[in-house]
């Protein structure tokens, strides 16, 4: 009976953690926009504005181009579900839920890849020039970002002897020394996160300028609730990468027990870490200019080099430590 009670409490907590993702994601985007506006001497919209935008889009009529196939209609649902599922596998507040067994980082990369695959297909589906262009650009960027991501993940996995994110976070909590491989993996993961979430040196999330847009070009034909789901998925992806960086490299504060106080501390710690990360992103986007598309390979090969040096320095430098 006691076991059942624990399981019930665990289930509630697991569901709560999963539900927190879509609720917190628009807030993070709102905070980044607010911080960016403040850096530009503007007052900026409220932090709740992205959430209000989503509400507005859900209320609007959904129009579909008459050349669109059924694939175009199902893609927003697939993208949203896959991204949410990937996010729910990442430990947000606690590492000791029984869903932690699913939290394999290769699964996360695979689910994000699935979402991107369908998004690119849908971009090409309607047959407009911009959709196809955006899809091919997205594939170019992600084709180079994914090896770097996996290489950084392998560096972590070699230190923690597991690709399970909860084990990695636990390992980081217990073995907290300064290691060169972690430093390089962090650098690589930051560069990959910037590229994968379509932030400034690679893609500009606020522009609809046809020569430069990547993500916006793919979703150009969407409207109403379809567009809302896709934007929501993009926001969850930003939160996912932010949480990945925050919890894997700076895991202090994450709950390791099911105690309510631990969860409160974890929530406060996570909010603090994400506030700092969001502000850092806003500063980065303010001081950097968008790179030309053909300079993206140089940016991503730097990410790959970081990950590779991290892996090598783990093998060479950290044996016998």
């Amino acid at each position: 009976m006691g076991g059942d009670a624990v399981n019930a409490a665990d289930t509630v907590l697991a569901v709560a953690q999963a539900l927190l993702w879509p609720l917190a994601a628009p807030l993070l985007v709102g905070w980044v926009r607010k911080a960016k506006a403040m850096l530009q001497n503007r007052r900026g919209a409220s932090v709740l504005q992205p959430a209000r935008n989503l509400g507005k889009l859900f209320a609007k009529e959904t129009r579909v181009a008459h050349t669109a196939s059924p694939l175009f209609r199902v893609t927003p649902y697939i993208v949203f579900t896959a991204t949410w599922l990937a996010a729910a596998a990442v430990p947000l507040l606690s590492t000791h839920l029984y869903t932690a067994a699913l939290a394999d980082v290769i699964v996360v990369a695979g689910l994000l890849g699935l979402a991107r695959f369908f998004l690119a297909l849908a971009g090409m589906d309607v047959g407009t020039a911009f959709g196809g262009m955006g899809a091919s650009r997205e594939m170019m960027v992600s084709g180079m970002a994914e090896p770097a991501l996996l290489m950084a993940v392998f560096t972590l996995a070699m230190s923690a002897h597991s690709t399970n994110l909860s084990s990695v976070v636990d390992h980081q909590l217990t073995g907290g020394t300064l290691l060169p491989s972690m430093l390089f993996a962090l650098g690589s993961l930051i560069l990959v996160a910037v590229a994968e979430t379509g932030r400034i040196p690679i893609d500009n999330p606020t522009t609809h300028l046809e020569l430069t847009m990547i993500h916006e070009a793919m979703v150009l034909e969407y409207s109403g609730r379809h567009l809302a789901l896709l934007e929501w998925a993009a926001q969850i992806r930003l939160l996912l990468y932010g949480t990945l960086i925050a919890n894997v490299f700076f895991p202090w504060g994450i709950a390791t027990t099911a105690h309510p106080a631990a969860w409160g501390i974890a929530l406060a710690a996570l909010a603090g870490k994400l506030l700092v990360l969001g502000a850092a992103l806003a500063v980065g986007e303010t001081v950097l200019a968008k790179k030309r598309l053909f300079q993206a390979p140089a940016f991503l090969s730097l990410a790959f080099l970081f990950a590779l040096i991290g892996l090598i320095s783990h093998v060479i430098l950290e044996q016998g430590l």
């Binding site: 300064l178 290691l179 060169p180 430093l183 390089f184 320095s313 430098l317």
Partner: peptide, 9 residues
């Protein structure tokens, strides 16, 4: 010790 390793990397 770990600082030396980081600097070398």
């Amino acid at each position: 010790h770990s600082l030396v390793l980081v600097l070398a990397a």
